[in-house]
Design a protein around this nucleic acid. Structure first.
Lengths: 121, 121
DNA sequence: GCCATTACTTACATGTTTGTTAGTACCGTA
DNA sequence: TACGGTACTAACAAACATGTAAGTAATGGC
């Protein structure tokens, strides 16, 4: 997300991780906010400020960073309108839309098992 | 994973995250190594040392930490045999086995799109 | 000119995760 | 008595991710 040092163990381990199709995929949607953002974008195209409103606990900085990352990974398309005040729209790409059914299943899993574990203690 | 400060914004934001079934689920398998560990355990019960051998880039410390976390989250069952030298076996719980088909789909997604993005630059 | 609006960016501080190295306990065997 | 095997743990250091606060640019309306 931020600048990465190459050659650290941390970085070189990442190479192992993305060699696996599964972890490669998970890596794309990893982090704290990406999935929430994608979920919002699934229903409709959003402006930056709309996302901000719908995800009030994400700071502007994080939202911007995550959107950039998603864009770079080809999951989100960014459209800038040359207006003042600025208007920027974000929408999912085909690639990202394919996550739909997977997210649904994960969501079902979550709903089913949320109460299973006593997360106290 | 390590000690968490409660009441930090970071922590309180987590509460929002696990309110959503989807992000709750993803949170359980988040982090760098959990998915790889679960994948290995899908095929068969493993001893600690077997996992270590199959995932050579994970340090012992990380392996131990992640296994503990998975155990706490009810995804992995740990069985200790009172022998010397020690023998400990790890296996997936029912709950974790349900990830199977989801992981498969994610894996397919990964395989399909790995080449799409030019991850250079 | 001053303020509001939108979509950001920058500098800095804090918090969390991961990696490094060394060490523990137990017993059997040499 | 020293050594090997297993499954860890502890103390420390480095890297990364996230949060805070403030600032930028352009233009239209007051």
């Amino acid at each position: 997300m931020a600048t990465r040092k190459e050659n650290s163990t941390y970085s070189s381990n990442e190479k192992w991780i993305i060699e696996c199709d599964l972890t490669y995929a998970v890596n794309k949607i990893g982090g704290r906010w990406k999935i929430l953002i994608i979920s919002k974008l699934e229903s409709k195209v959003h402006r930056f400020s709309e996302l901000k409103k719908e995800l009030p606990f994400i700071t502007e900085r994080m939202l911007a960073l995550q959107l950039r990352a998603l864009e770079k990974d080809g999951l989100v398309k960014r459209t800038v309108y040359a207006e003042i005040p600025p208007k920027v729209e974000y929408e999912l790409t085909e690639m990202a839309l394919e996550f739909g059914p997977i997210f649904k299943q994960l969501s079902i899993w979550g709903g089913k098992h949320r109460s299973d574990t006593n997360s106290s203690s």
